[in-house]
Amino acid sequence: MTAAGAGIRLHPACRVRQEGFGLLFYDNRGPRLLFAETGSLLPAEFYGTVRGRDEFPEGLTENQKKALQKFVAQLLEKGFLREQSIC
């Protein structure tokens, strides 16, 4: 969950790139990897800038948005994404 007024972006210690199965996240602090079977749902560069928590790539269905919200929550919990003020 994110605080009101906070956006989300990739943690500075993390990187992400597109792979055939979806996204591959790398966390330099472990180092550790996260393989996310997202297909083309989420562009790798999407969280390279601060995004609002209800902001999604264009063209997603409601079900895809729900799935993405759940995934983003997991990324926040695991530390690959972090909250950042957008004020």
């Binding site: 790139r17 597109q18 792979e19 055939g20 199965f21 591959l24 790398y26 180092p31 990897l33 393989f35």
Partner: peptide, 16 residues
């Protein structure tokens, strides 16, 4: 470590 994804082949190394 998820070997399934590794065995699918990555487009480049994670590190060098």
């Amino acid at each position: 470590m998820s070997n399934r994804y590794v065995e699918m082949g990555l487009r480049s190394p994670v590190n060098l």
